[in-house]
Amino acid sequence: MISGPNRLIRIGFALLLGLVLAACGAKQVVVQGNFPPPLMEKTPLTLGVVYTESFKTHEIYDEAAGREETDWLVKTGSAQVEFWDTLFTGMFTEVVHIDSHDALHAVEDEVDAVIIPYVEDLQYTIPLHTNVKVYEIWMKYRFRLVTMDAIHDHGNGELTYNPNQSLADWTLSAYGKTPTAFLQSDEEAVNLAAVVALRDAGANFATSFHRVPAVAEWLDTRNTITELPAPVTASVEESSTSEESSTSEESSTSEESSTVDESTADDEGTTST
């Protein structure tokens, strides 16, 4: 039987060991935030949404380069899904999730188009050389808008789409910075920067969706035009959007079909510090 003081010493030692080990481990952040719905007139569309597995579980792992640094694991997947769900629901009259072949067949006749978002790139800066906890995050998204006919299932639960049936394919960038440097842990600071970046991505998407040339053209053919005020920084964003957007005809991909999880977009986040 262990006597009282010995037991306390053992517990103390275990706690100390735990603290030492914890200090050696990676810092982990599961991004969480409250995302407001957009205040705008809904576009009269029934939009199907496919969140790929890599989008739903998106995370970045940054291995420490030196002894002074720490490994970082930032999981943005669940926050991405929550955020884009809120945004799409506020922007379109109806939003339908397509996550399986059953769901695909159930909504085949109702959906006007299907949107597939990808996180193409994610970079962040760590304030290594300052004591100020201000982190910055850049995200680059790729959106593919395809017709329902373009989505197929091969009976094994895997959804694929034909890139030649894309209505539009465009990229969009977002930026977020920790809004305040005071009284925050590193994890809170990274979380806040990610939330700000998500909000910025939403603002960019909401104000530019109707102005993506291929989307505008498609909406025009459907007589679904919604006038939106241009964002103040439109000149920069607009040019990058139009430069990088392409219609299915302009698409350089030669694949016959590609799975939604194995798109030409590199959905794995990369980091730089």
Binding site: N34, P36, P37, P38, L39, M40, R199, D200, G202, A203, N204, A206, T207, P229, P231, V232, T233, E237
Partner: peptide
């Protein structure tokens, strides 16, 4: 939040 996304840094008047 109430006015999202019209008063974000990129969209604010």
């Amino acid at each position: 939040n109430m006015m999202y996304p019209w008063f974000e840094p990129r969209t604010a008047p």
